[in-house]
Computed example of a mutant assay.
Amino acid sequence: MPKVTQIKSKNGSTQRQLDTLRSLGLRRIGHTVEVKDTPQSRGMLHRVRHLITVQED
Score class of each variant (00 low, 15 high):
G25E: 09
P39D: 07
V35G: 06
T32G: 04
Q17V: 11
R27Q: 15
T53P: 00
V33M: 05
R47G: 01
D19F: 07
S41I: 02
H50S: 13
T5Y: 02
R47K: 11
Q17G: 03
R47V: 00
S9I: 07
T14N: 15
S23N: 14
H31P: 01
M1Y: 05
R16D: 10
G43M: 09
V48T: 02
R22I: 08
P2N: 08
G30E: 11
R22P: 00
G25A: 10
Q15V: 12
T20R: 02
Q40M: 11
L51D: 01
I7Y: 12
H31N: 14
M1W: 02
Q17I: 09
K36I: 03
Q55L: 10
K3E: 14
V33E: 01
R22C: 11
R42M: 10
P39C: 07
R42T: 04
G12W: 08
T53M: 10
V33P: 00
L26H: 01
Q15E: 15
S41F: 01
T20D: 05
G30R: 10
N11W: 05
S23W: 02
E34M: 06
I52C: 04
R16A: 12
K10A: 13
V4D: 00
S13N: 06
L21D: 00
K8M: 13
K3T: 13
L24M: 10
S9C: 11
K8Q: 15
G43I: 02
G12Q: 08
R22G: 07
E34L: 04
L26A: 02
D19I: 02
H46K: 13
R22Q: 15
T38G: 08
D37Y: 10
T53H: 05
L18K: 11
I7A: 11
L21H: 00
M44I: 03
R42L: 08
M1C: 04
I29M: 14
T53Q: 15
I29Q: 14
Q6C: 07
V33L: 07
I7M: 14
L51W: 03
E56A: 13
H31A: 06
T38C: 12
L21S: 01
V54D: 05
K10T: 06
K3P: 00
H46F: 09
S13Q: 08
G43D: 05
R27E: 15
G43H: 06
E34D: 13
I7K: 15
R42D: 05
T5L: 07
L45G: 01
K8G: 07
L18A: 09
V54K: 09
D19M: 13
Q40H: 12
I7D: 10
V48L: 04
R22T: 14
L18N: 10
L51A: 06
D37W: 11
R49Q: 15
R27A: 13
T5M: 14
R22V: 09
D19H: 13
K3H: 12
R42P: 02
Q40L: 12
V54S: 05
I7S: 12
D57I: 06
D19C: 09
K10P: 00
T14F: 12
S13C: 13
L45N: 01
R47L: 13
R16S: 13
P2V: 09
H31K: 10
L24R: 00
S41G: 01
H31Y: 08
L45A: 03
T14P: 03
P39E: 06
D37H: 10
T32Q: 14
V4E: 01
R16V: 06
Q15T: 11
I7F: 12
Q40A: 14
G43L: 07
K3R: 15
T32F: 02
G12K: 08
H31I: 03
H46Y: 11
K36N: 09
S41D: 05
